[in-house]
Design a protein around this nucleic acid. Structure first.
Length: 493
RNA sequence: GGCCCCAUCGUCUAGCGGUCUAGGACGCUGGCCUCUCACGCCGGAAACAUGGGUUCGAGUCCCAUUGGGGUCACCA
């Protein structure tokens, strides 16, 4: 096999959801598996849907995910289209520009070539004319589509016009798809599609084929939504006399409604998922398991990036579309968090703690980190679990204290006795606290659960916390005692 | 509607003609552990869409039906 070169070619029209990043990741995996290159190409040919900042979003989130781009827009290219930002990486490469709006001349050249060879023609039908034609077809209950009116007319290049590709209706075609096998058309159910728009910009069909060729892309990985237009692409390669790349049409990722993933169906994008406290390794691992499995009887589903690169293959791609199951991703994130070293865990929590405005002394954080680590499914859950360590007034869920046979007098009793016992401790260690407090419970004829429940709310304010004694030890004797006293004042006598 | 794609537990999937009384994971659920919540461990319920073929034998091959999805733009 010649060099493997794949690409991710998003249009900067908004924030890509995870389905898009999955395609990017698969393309990356295939390239890396074969020691090839992964490129990023910006398909900004739709002037109306451009969203400023979308390119930055894509580049930054790919970076967060650790998907290395071998070739892509240079800073100069970004600057040329007014999308350069501070800290934008210098990517570049030998096949640029990697931004389509920067190579309009090239597309026009190809379009002209197609016209001169008789594969395409100029069409000056106005949108109004096309609209009327469509309406008439609908009225006659015919399939709507361009009639080919301009096929035989000689439209002058001076007039506003588009360039259309002549689609031979009676032409059988077979695509050898890397994931679907042979896909066959007896005839092509498409009308003469536009290659070059009247504003001088190419459509996807022209631009993507030209670029894939120019950039020597070996494998085109894209969603099945492109399968129906694959005949156009095949025909285009044929007309141009170019060798088509290998096509691999991936199954879609659907939302829980069974429909193609979209913002409407609650699709998440990489940034959101990051803000929600997901680890990039979780996202990559999880997303790669939708529509792909290692096969060969393997049950493995936790993969490092390197393992993914090694195991990945187009043969392992499924035909059926999948559903994005956020619950399972949450589980996986918890698993990845638990597998982090404590130091790494603390490090990764930092930005989230800051964002939440929770300041916890490093030593205290370190002491409780292992306990927190096995309790969270997302990094954002850490701050609320540790905010009782912050030097701030506590808000207590007092009602939750009085349960399982604990009334106000009983609670006072627990707190009073604990106060005495804890105060007497020479060393405020986990073991000592453990022993002392269990003693209190026994003494008062209470089970450990309810008794400690009172203390938990009194000292941390919540019902769900890291282990009690550890938390107390970290908090220190003074704070614990004063918080117990505070609580005593809050309980009706 | 035309064309194309798809079809194993609720979800992600293993299975590439016999080893399938269909395996794993998430979720759900019973129990153990236990100071809350988690983690961990043990157990359970849960699927081959339907109908025809082919074959000694079909979850696995073929066809039809049904169901789902995609696409039919001067959007990608």
């Amino acid at each position: 096999m010649t060099e493997v070169r794949t690409r991710f070619a998003p249009s900067p029209t908004g924030f890509q959801h995870l389905g898009g990043f999955r395609t990017a990741f698969f393309a990356y995996l295939l390239a890396k598996k074969h020691g090839g290159q992964f490129l990023l190409r910006i398909e900004d040919t739709d002037r109306e849907r451009l969203v400023p900042g979308a390119i930055r979003f894509i580049v930054e989130e790919l970076g967060w995910l650790g998907i290395q781009i071998d070739e892509g827009p240079s800073r100069e290219e970004l600057k040329a289209i007014g999308e350069l930002w501070d800290g934008a990486p210098e990517i570049g490469g030998p096949c640029g520009p990697y931004i389509q709006s920067l190579k309009l001349k090239r597309y026009k050249e190809v379009a002209e070539e197609l016209i001169s060879k008789g594969f395409a023609y100029r069409c000056d039908c106005t949108p109004e004319m096309l609209e009327r034609e469509r309406a008439e077809q609908m009225a006659r209950r015919e399939l709507p589509g361009y009639s080919g009116y301009c096929r035989t007319r000689e439209v002058s290049a001076d007039r506003p016009h588009v360039v259309r590709f002549k689609i031979p209706q009676k032409r059988a075609l077979t695509l050898n798809d890397a994931v679907r096998g042979r896909v066959h058309w007896d005839s092509i159910p498409l009308r003469d599609t536009v290659l070059l728009k009247s504003d001088g910009f190419p459509t996807y069909h022209l631009a993507a084929m030209v670029d894939d060729h120019d950039m020597r892309i070996s494998h085109v990985l894209r969603g099945v939504e492109w399968l129906s237009s694959a005949p156009v692409h095949l025909l285009l390669y044929e007309a141009l006399g170019w060798q088509p790349p290998i096509f691999a049409h991936f199954p879609l990722v659907n939302g829980t409604d069974g429909k193609k993933l979209s913002k409407r169906s609650g699709a998440l994008n990489a940034r959101q998922v990051r803000e929600m406290g997901y680890l990039p390794e979780t996202v990559l691992n999880f997303v790669s398991l939708i529509g792909w499995a290692p096969g060969e009887g393997s049950n493995q589903e936790i993969f490092t990036r390197d393992e993914l690169i090694k195991s990945f293959s187009l043969e392992g791609i499924n035909q059926a579309s999948g559903v994005f199951d956020a619950t399972k991703m949450a589980w996986m994130n918890g698993l990845y968090i638990r597998n982090l070293s404590v130091g790494e865990f603390i490090e990764r929590c930092k930005p989230y703690m800051e964002l939440a405005g929770v300041q916890v002394p490093a030593e205290q954080f370190a002491a409780l980190a292992p306990h927190v680590q096995e309790r969270v499914k997302a990094l954002t859950e850490v701050a609320p679990m540790l905010d009782f360590l912050a030097d701030k007034p506590l808000t207590r869920e007092m009602d939750s204290m009085f349960q399982k046979g604990i009334d106000a007098p009983k609670a006072r009793e627990v707190l009073n006795r604990s106060l005495v016992v804890l105060e007497a401790l020479p060393d405020f260690t986990v073991e000592a606290i453990d022993q002392a407090l269990r003693g209190v419970a026994t003494e008062l004829g209470l089970k450990a659960g309810p008794a400690f429940g009172v203390l938990r709310v009194a000292v941390t304010g919540k019902t769900i916390t890291p282990p009690l004694f550890e938390s107390f030890a970290v908090l220190g004797k003074d704070t614990v005692l004063s918080r117990i006293r505070e609580t005593l004042d809050l309980i009706p006598a």
